[in-house]
Amino acid sequence: MARERDAAVADALDEAARVLVRLAARLRAVHDGPRAADRVAAPPPAAPAPETPARQRRRQPLGERQQAVLALGGLATETGLAAGDVAQALGYTAPNATNILKRLEELSYLSRVPGERPLRWRRREVSG
């Protein structure tokens, strides 16, 4: 009886976590609009730095699912997260999570943790 109750509570907490991550992603998307307008109104920098391909890619807007993945705290750790971890946390399928992680890697948001199997990703350090 207690085991079933604990399992039900754990399931409810998992679902609540997924809902909160989605809500956080939507709130970020809503508030990106005013920040973008502020950046447009600001005077241009005196001498803009040349853009690297990684910087150009990062200017692309992120989708809701990409934002939800980036909101996961486990990506900020040294060991990062595997696609299965992301899929379980957000209710995605493992192949979809893998595709999102690979795309975020291409966009220079994430990097693979070397020597890990299954593959794991973590936040990439941003410089400049």
Rank of each mutant, 00 (worst) to 15 (best):
E78S: 05
R55A: 14
G73K: 12
Q67A: 04
A87I: 11
G63I: 04
R39D: 00
A76F: 06
T52E: 05
P44H: 01
V86C: 07
E51V: 15
P43E: 04
R57D: 00
A46P: 01
L70S: 02
E78K: 15
Q67V: 11
P61Y: 05
A41P: 06
G80Q: 01
R35L: 15
R59M: 11
D38S: 07
R65K: 12
D38M: 11
L81H: 10
Q88N: 15
D38Q: 08
L62M: 03
R55N: 10
A47S: 14
E51T: 14
G63S: 06
A37L: 13
D85M: 12
V86P: 02
P53N: 07
R39I: 08
E51W: 13
A76R: 03
A83N: 05
V69S: 00
A46V: 08
E51H: 08
R55D: 10
A68M: 01
A37R: 14
A82K: 06
E64I: 02
G63T: 03
G74S: 12
A76W: 07
A42L: 13
G74W: 00
V86F: 09
L72I: 01
E78T: 12
G73D: 09
P53R: 01
A37H: 14
A42P: 10
A87K: 01
G63E: 07
P45W: 02
G84C: 15
A68F: 00
A54R: 15
P50T: 10
T77F: 08
E64M: 02
T79G: 07
R59G: 13
P45K: 04
A71V: 00
V69I: 03
P50E: 08
A36P: 13
A82L: 12
R59T: 12
V40E: 11
P43Q: 11
A41Y: 09
G73Q: 11
P43C: 12
G63Q: 09
G73E: 13
D85T: 03
Q66M: 03
A71N: 08
R55E: 08
V69T: 00
A83R: 08
P48F: 01
Q60G: 04
G63K: 05
A83V: 12
A76K: 07
L72A: 02
G63R: 10
G74D: 04
Q60V: 06
A71L: 03
Q88R: 15
P45G: 04
R59I: 07
V86G: 03
R39Y: 10
A49C: 07
A68W: 02
G84H: 13
R58V: 04
L81V: 01
